[in-house]
Every structure is written in C-alpha cells, then in structure tokens.
Amino acid sequence: MLVKTIFCGFGGQGVLMMGISLANSAMNKGYHVTYLPAYGAEMRGGTANCTVAVSDEEIASPIASEPGCLVVMNSPSLLTFQNKVSEGGTIFINSSIVDIRPNRDDVKTICVPCTDMAQELGNNRVANIIMMGAFIKELKVVSPEIYLKSLEAIMGSRKKALAEINRKAFAAGFDYIKD
C-alpha cells in the first residue's frame, strides 16, 4: 500500500496542517510516512502545498510525480496539479470556492463545500478539518479516532478550545461522504 497525496491551496487555509495531521495520524497507526512541504517562492506568492506519502513499507521518494490523491482548496491549485494525478486517482475539491472542475474523466472527483460548511459551524478556519473528515471517510487510511487524537496532540493544550470545534468539523466532513 502506498498513498501519496498533495494538499494545496492558499496560505492560511491550513493546507500544511492537513498534511501534518494526516502524516501524524498515519505514523501513529504504524505506517511509514513522509511529509514534504513546498516552501520558498511559492509560499510567498500566497499558495502553499505539501506532499504526504503513507505506506506499509519503506517510502522511497517523498516526492509524488503521480499522486494518487489531490486535495485542492483553491482554483489555481487545481489547474497546477490536476494533470499529475494518477489514473484512477481521487481529487477532493473545496467546491465553496473552486468553481472549475477537473478536465479529466479518469479520476474520481469529490466536491466538498467545506468553506460554506465551516461558516455554518461558525468558524471559517475549520474548512480544512471538514475536508479531512471527508478525506478520511473516503480513503480510510486511518480511523477517525486515531486522526482526531493525533490532531489534538499536534494542536497541543493551548488550543484546547479548538478541539471541540475541530471534532464537530471533522464529523461534518466525515458524514458528508455517504457510504
């Protein structure tokens, strides 16, 4: 098993946090993981992305030439990365603010209006966690329990107030994907 995912969006959307939380929960489950943030000029230009590889065996390259999954939180990212996704892969789209759709029919597209959903929950900033709920439900890389526990560990005690809203957000995204 080897799942490589690129998370991408604007800086400030919590894109790197999505990757870090996935990497940590997969690590806690005992998988091999790598987390590779894109930094530098791209970051300064206002976009951010990171690549997470999860595998049950040693990971050769942390770089994804053909990621199996792509999570896009804004439109430019979809244009940048959609053609990299491997055949049969999955693209998650923040459909609240991404109004274009992939130009491919060989991948599965999952639209989650996570920014709208976050607004409904009263906190714009948890759109990323809502998306992670959908991501975990769809891919089943780790269980929701492990994910939430790992997320809380990363957030640390200083953000305990956020734990509750994160749980709600995760649940909203998780339930958004129907079995």
């Binding site: 993981v33 790598t34 987390y35 942390p62």
Partner: peptide, 9 residues
C-alpha cells in the same frame, strides 16, 4: 532543502 524541510518519523 528537501531533507531539511521534510518530516519523517
């Protein structure tokens, strides 16, 4: 830079 930025257990 990649080794420096990458996270692994």
């Amino acid at each position: 830079g990649m080794m420096g930025q990458m996270m692994e257990p």
